[in-house]
């Protein structure tokens, strides 16, 4: 009898879930999700609560070298992580006072809405659509899209992609950009960067598009592949994100970013984390944003 009750409960739970859970496909249905989001969001922690626990929870990538990755000793490293540690140091007095949560491109918004992290620092590009679901602080980096393709069949213009297969990662800017502006391009979507690159190497697609920083770094070490289009779409910025409505934490991060400009913090960050990968050829000012000011 108990079992019957339990299974009834479970079924009821699942059915209500179906009604509200559709949003996690992320692509369509965003309007519906938007109306739910405001009332059905777990309460984010206040700064006081974070201080009380003594640890800030920050969502970062764990497989997006050199922005957020795990080194061979199991330590998380990268440009985003360097900044995350500084936030922890200035908010809580120690750069170890941070609990890193490994997120995927497709679930970053969910993590904030569910109140499972305080801040997302996972190479999160600011878009209008995302701004409806999360609150972005001032930017700390800027990017455009890049398209990398094999040397033998270089793609140097978007028009060349017509009727060809372009690889993208789900939930990234590239996915929405091509869906909106070039519906005739066939998209091959993957959940993770590693899978997308493997697909490009296997020749399952003609080209791969994502942020130019990402493809530039990748092409440097992969002979036979070149970034044919280095800057596509609008110049976009990358910023920390907090839960929608969490102005207290966002304002604190904004002040922090402005103060850090005095010591050119993000240029130091570039030297430490990005330069070893990009080499001397990439000008730090083409990527780094200080004090939230984009020229």
């Amino acid at each position: 009898m108990k079992k019957k009750l339990l299974s009834m409960l479970l079924v009821a739970g699942v059915l209500t879930g179906i009604l509200t859970g559709c949003g996690l496909t992320e692509t369509g249905s965003s309007k519906e999700e938007g109306t739910f989001a405001t009332q059905n969001t777990a309460q984010a922690r206040t700064i006081a609560e974070i201080k009380e626990e003594g640890k800030i929870r920050i969502g970062v990538f764990s497989d997006k070298n050199p922005f957020g990755y795990v080194d061979e000793n199991g330590e998380v490293q990268g440009y985003d992580v360097y900044f995350a540690k500084r936030l922890a140091k200035d908010l809580l007095g120690s750069e170890d006072a941070v609990e890193f949560v490994y997120v995927e491109a497709a679930n970053r918004v969910e993590y904030l809405q569910a109140g499972k992290v305080d801040v997302i620092l996972a190479n999160f590009t600011v878009t209008e659509e995302r701004s409806e679901k999360v609150d972005f602080a001032l930017p700390y980096m800027k990017v455009a899209l890049g398209v990398v393709s094999p040397d033998g069949a270089q793609i140097t213009d978007v028009e060349q992609l017509k009727d060809k297969t372009l690889i993208v990662v789900k939930g990234t800017t590239a996915e929405t950009y091509f869906e909106k502006n070039y519906p005739e391009v066939k998209l091959l979507k993957f959940d993770e960067y590693q899978e997308a690159y493997d697909a490009l190497l296997d020749g399952r697609g003609d080209a791969f598009s994502t942020d130019n920083t990402e493809v530039l770094a990748w092409a440097i070490i992969h002979d036979g592949y070149t970034v044919g289009i280095t800057s596509l779409g609008e110049l976009e910025t990358i910023a920390p994100a907090v839960q929608k409505g969490n102005t207290e934490l966002r304002d604190w991060i904004n002040e922090e970013i402005i103060v850090l400009a005095e010591e050119q913090f993000f240029h130091q960050n570039f030297e430490e984390t990005l330069k070893p990968v990009y080499g001397e050829d990439v000008d730090p000012d083409s990527l780094v944003v200080e004090g939230g000011v984009v020229e």
Partner: peptide, 13 residues
């Protein structure tokens, strides 16, 4: 599998 992806990514350069 995730650990594997992290290792691949960390050593991709």
């Amino acid at each position: 599998v995730k650990v594997g992806k992290q290792i691949i990514d960390a050593s991709r350069y």
